[in-house]
Amino acid sequence: MNDSMSIPHLIMNASLVVQLVMLLLLAGSIASWVVIFQRSIVLRRAKKAHRAFEDKFWSGVDLNELYREKPPEQEVVGAEHIFRSGFREFNRLMTKTRNSQAILDGVQRAMRVAWSREEERLNLHLIFLATVASASPYIGLFGTVWGIMGSFQSLSMAQQATLSTVAPWIAEALIATAMGLFAAIPAVIFYNRLSASSNRLLGQYEDFAEEFHSILHRNLQGREREAA
């Protein structure tokens, strides 16, 4: 492989547009990998935290103690966030109304809000991955098409149309497509993987919310019977 066909040489000799496309793709690739790593860590931790919280929740601990374990101003995430917002709403409404249906509605609303926040938090930037995954092949293709246009223009100037005059141009143009695919393929794979795991986690949160809701409901039913 001679020096003129090495990849760095080809990239350096590419036309400006192709170089910009390559730069864009490189930035997209790096950003998508940043997102991939960040999301992976976040989701892994969220999963771990969820498992730990569920263990603690179902260990039979008193919910009031669980609620008071952390100061209310501290930000919490995951199922704990749902639990705290639901329990806080429950406690607040308990002092104001005796209507259990109204309390349960309020708790459910609060938990839905918390779940929605969690969903937003977990799916943060995943859309960026999806964008990179779907757009970068096209961007790379654009760079290739532009480069091949340039190669044909230079071919029209050339006296003899030999393969050696065309080859560097086409190779350089194809690098753009290669980079597009290089950015897109991990993005696609990790988007699917991360969104699947985040959906699973959100489903678990939802389950937890339902279970918590049924606990509160049972609690309220018990109180009504006592009151009656």
Partner: peptide, 9 residues
């Protein structure tokens, strides 16, 4: 944060 992921990327 984004420091470690950036480094990794």
């Amino acid at each position: 944060g984004y420091g470690l992921p950036t480094l990794l990327a």
